[in-house]
Simulated scan of single mutants.
Amino acid sequence: MKRFLILLPILFLTGFAQAANNPKSGTDSLRRFFNEVNSFSARFSQVVLDERHSPIQESSGTLWIERPNKFRWDYDKPYKQQIVADGKRLWVYDVGLQQVTVRALSNGLGDTPAMLLAGKGRLDDNFKIKALSTQNDLEWVQLTPKHKDSGYEDIRIGFALGKLRALEMVDGFGHVTRVTLESPRENIRIESTRFSFTPPEGVDVVGE
């Protein structure tokens, strides 16, 4: 099976508003998360669909986020992989291949969901935001990157009662990465070691 590094996914694991907040729209929920949520964790399941919307990969795992610029994305199925951003560098560890790739966090991520999720700043600087119609009991928001090097043509986020329930990212090849979240927690204390990474002894390290 071809391995996909989906920096994600890394993506949009946006938080869950309390029902009492009664957000008016998916756009309100998105902005609330971006402005008020500083840490987040959840279980995730992820499927990649080809241009015909046929599944070509399924995976699952756990993620943690702490602003600014720290996240960890641990895949446990179908193979083990860790993606860790420590605030300065991005580490990708493929356990099966015994290989680690490292690069500066700012290189190549641009306006990806990863940086939207863990970064600080104004959404409108990097994305065009548009409220979409309600489908399957979800209020959808569309984010279109303003810069062409983001890696994604289109990002759609679905909320139910202010809670993020779905995330879809469309790349330039028409492939769709669809992510769903379970057991989300926001503004929690996360151990600092969660966002540090030391390559295990004996593995190949490629990059900066």
Rank of each mutant, 00 (worst) to 15 (best):
K2Q: 14
R3M: 11
F4V: 02
L5N: 11
I6S: 01
L7R: 02
P9W: 08
L13D: 03
L13H: 07
T14H: 10
A17P: 12
A20Y: 15
N21V: 13
N21I: 13
K24Q: 13
G26V: 07
D28K: 07
D28C: 08
S29K: 02
R32W: 15
N35L: 14
N35S: 14
N35T: 14
N35P: 06
V37A: 07
N38T: 09
F40I: 01
F40C: 04
S41T: 03
S41A: 05
S41R: 05
A42N: 01
R43P: 00
R43H: 12
Q46Y: 05
D50P: 12
E51F: 15
R52W: 14
R52H: 15
S54F: 09
P55Q: 04
P55C: 06
I56K: 03
Q57D: 05
E58N: 01
S60F: 03
S60E: 11
T62Y: 10
L63F: 09
W64R: 03
W64S: 06
R67F: 06
N69D: 14
F71M: 14
W73P: 03
D74Y: 07
D74P: 02
D74M: 08
D76N: 09
Y79L: 13
K80W: 03
Q81S: 04
A85E: 00
K88H: 05
W91L: 07
W91Q: 08
Y93W: 14
Y93A: 07
D94G: 10
V95K: 15
L97C: 08
Q98W: 01
Q99S: 09
T101V: 08
R103S: 13
S106G: 11
N107P: 01
N107S: 14
N107C: 02
G110F: 09
G110E: 10
D111Y: 03
P113C: 09
P113W: 10
A114M: 04
M115F: 09
A118I: 06
A118T: 06
G119P: 12
K120E: 14
D124V: 15
D124S: 15
D125Q: 14
N126G: 10
K128D: 15
I129F: 12
I129G: 04
L132I: 10
T134I: 10
T134F: 02
N136Q: 12
N136H: 07
N136C: 00
D137T: 06
L138C: 01
W140K: 09
W140C: 09
Q142M: 12
P145K: 01
P145D: 07
K146S: 10
D149M: 09
Y152S: 02
D154C: 06
D154S: 10
R156G: 03
I157V: 14
L161W: 13
L161H: 14
L161V: 10
L164Y: 02
L164F: 07
A166N: 11
A166I: 04
L167N: 02
E168K: 08
M169F: 08
F173E: 13
V176N: 00
T177E: 00
R178Q: 01
R178W: 00
T180G: 00
T180K: 05
L181H: 01
E182W: 03
S183R: 15
S183Y: 13
P184A: 12
P184E: 08
R189D: 15
R189I: 15
I190R: 02
T193G: 06
R194A: 11
F197V: 02
T198F: 07
T198M: 07
T198P: 00
T198W: 02
P199E: 13
E201A: 15
D204R: 12
V205Y: 11
V206C: 04
